[in-house]
Write a protein that binds this DNA or RNA. Structure first.
Length: 561
RNA sequence: CGCGGGAUAGAGCAGUCUGGUAGCUCGCAAGGCUCAUAACCUUGAGGUCAGUGGUUCAAAUCCACUUCCCGCAACCA
């Protein structure tokens, strides 16, 4: 198989607050499974993640906790890092957008854009809150909707009647930060990225992409409506300062988070590899032949398909741009959204306290929201963990190992059987492994998991048909050979599951006293565990989730409203 | 007429691009097995493919319209 070079990024979660199952399902876990899979099949893989830290929510969050913003984002960055480690996300590096590297690179890209004539200074009017001593984003101005009379309308939109508003339309407008009505409209200067001028180049580039229908549809819609120039700076303290050497009028301004966040992919690589980042990000330095895959929630698709590529195209045509954009839908919780304020849903820290990472990983990948929003319920979770992991895989492992060790011992006295049945099974297994591998390379996670489960079932069917417990009574040798064959099957089942449930696989493979990266040649791999091989019987593989536990969880996490 | 996704057995989904006997998992029923975590294996029941109209020898699939659900909607990332 020809080895590929693969760069994988996962949309950077906003640092403010902890991620919930939706974030894991829609972006973090799929990217990790894909990264692990690529490493296992021998591709040169770089998997980059991090936290997006700048912007108003961080400033306000820090104020609320009474600490410095950097202290605040550092605290939450570490919480993210810690929790992802517990979920076994295998980032080659998990960085942050508040790093020096990101500051330098974002400033450099802004200079490049300015040199190429894609940045323009404009004077705009914005609402300033005198008591808060800050400009307020539209969203942080609330008041009464002039159309429907709702009293909680936001400056950008009324949530009751969905009408799009201008903050100046609001009746009794006040600051969402402090409640102050002491507001005034002030003039302020900002930098605009001239997307209108970049539109043709972006379209030309989009046309060369082999994206799926959804992504192309979103991208073309934006292009067809015409790209508007977009403000890339803000009047905030917490952000990357606009470089005054190039933009002398921009004192006390910072870049808008959406400008610097995706640049974080590049700067985080640089933080890890130093100048080696060029091999992954500059086409002239070897990035031309690599495959760059981005994972994100569907809300992020416009920014990754249009805004970020436009920024890179405008700055320097040598930057590597995305090849495959995997946008996923949302995971809901019992038919509603996850909500921290309403205490609905399960967040990453509680999730890992309830069940091992592999349970979550398996379920969330098997039910990845690929085409439509997907509903999480504890009932479904328990059902699939119990059935697939416990009954199909876990039970197969134990029934084989326990029988052999109790009747014969923990040192293998037999070589695997190789009759007609076994030949047929190996052929079927090869074909299913090809499909499974294909689905994983194409990021078709649901189909991949269905195929993996079907592969596991082959083990139980084989054992049942061959009935080594019956054969044992008359032909010990034959029985042992059947079980030896089953142990080799087991090894393959586990190796194939490595991208998804790495912790369990490591544990059981180590009991089996074997290992392996990936299965390319079934015939050869089926003769790995042979006469003389020692193994241990693991105490357990998975544990079932009881109905009582499901009831308890539903109450604990407000699953039933 | 904002954009997109969805509607297929009791539940969750595939199949729709490229029309040709409606499929998978769970649940349910019957049988088998008794090595294993009351697990496993086999078989079966269960569907006017959201609705209406059209194209066609033939429509879940193509076309038009309608209904319902879910997201997104450019200063919240």
């Amino acid at each position: 198989m020809k080895k590929e070079k693969i760069l994988i990024t996962c949309a950077l979660p906003y640092v403010n607050g902890l991620p919930h199952l939706g974030h894991l399902a829609g972006c973090l876990l799929p990217s990790d499974v894909y990264a692990r899979f690529n490493r296992l099949i021998g591709n040169e893989t770089l998997y980059i993640g991090g936290t997006d830290e700048h912007g108003t929510p961080s400033e306000l969050g820090a104020k609320k906790e009474g600490i410095d913003v950097l202290e605040y984002t550092t605290k939450y960055h570490n919480l993210h890092k810690d929790i992802y480690k517990k979920f076994n996300l295998s980032f080659d590096y998990f960085g942050r957008t508040s790093s020096n590297e990101n500051t330098e690179l974002s400033q450099q890209i802004a200079r490049e854009l300015a040199q190429n004539g894609y940045i323009e200074e404009r004077e705009v009017e914005q609402v300033f809150s005198i008591d808060d001593d800050m400009f307020l984003p539209d969203r942080y101005i609330v008041g009464t909707c002039p159309y429907c009379g709702a009293t909680n309308a936001r400056g950008d939109q009324c949530e009751s009647c969905t009408k799009v508003l201008d903050p100046k339309d609001l009746i009794d407008a006040h600051s969402a930060v402090s409640g102050s009505t002491n507001l005034e409209v002030r003039k302020t200067k900002h930098l605009y990225l001239k997307l209108s001028k970049l539109s043709d180049k972006v379209r030309e580039w989009v046309n060369t992409r082999n994206w799926n229908k959804l992504t192309v549809g979103i991208a073309n819609k934006w292009l067809d409506e015409g790209l508007s120039d977009r403000c890339i700076t803000r009047d905030l303290k917490w952000g990357i300062p606009v470089p005054l050497d190039t933009f002398p009028d921009m004192k006390d301004k910072v870049f808008y988070v959406w400008f610097d966040a995706p640049i974080g992919y590049i700067s985080i690589t640089k933080e890890l590899l130093g100048d080696g980042y060029k091999n992954w990000w500059l086409e002239s330095c070897g990035a031309k032949d690599e495959k760059y895959v981005e994972f994100m929630g569907k809300d992020n698709v416009p920014f990754h398909s249009i805004m970020f590529p436009a920024t890179l195209i405008g700055a320097n045509s040598d930057y590597k741009k995305v090849d495959i954009l995997k946008g996923l839908s949302y995971l809901n919780f019992n038919g509603g959204k996850f909500s921290k304020s309403a205490n609905r849903g399960i967040f990453a820290d509680s999730a890992i306290a309830e069940f091992p990472a592999d349970y979550w990983r398996y379920w969330l990948i098997k039910n990845a929201p690929e085409t439509d929003d997907t509903d999480f319920t504890f009932e479904r979770f328990a059902e699939e963990i119990n059935k697939d992991l416990n009954d199909v895989l876990g039970n197969f492992v134990l029934r084989v190992l326990k029988f052999y060790s109790s009747k014969i011992g923990t040192t293998l006295q037999h070589n695997p059987a190789n009759g007609e049945k076994e030949q047929a099974l190996k052929a079927e297994l090869s074909s299913k492994i090809s499909s499974y591998t294909k689905y994983l390379s194409e990021m078709e996670f649901r189909k991949a998991m269905a195929e993996l489960r079907a592969i596991w079932v082959l083990g139980n069917t084989y054992i049942d048909e061959m009935a080594p417990w019956t054969v044992f009574k008359t032909d010990t040798e034959k029985s042992g050979e059947i079980l030896a064959f089953a142990m080799n099957l087991m090894r393959i089942f586990l190796i194939l599951a490595r991208p998804v449930i790495p912790e369990t696989v490591e544990k059981i493979l180590s009991s089996l006293n074997t290992s392996g990266d990936w299965i390319n040649d079934v015939e050869a791999e089926m003769n790995t565990i042979v006469k003389g091989h020692n193994f241990e019987v693991p105490a357990s593989v998975f544990t079932k989730i009881t109905p009582e536990k499901v009831t308890e969880l539903n109450e604990k996490y407000n699953a039933k409203k």
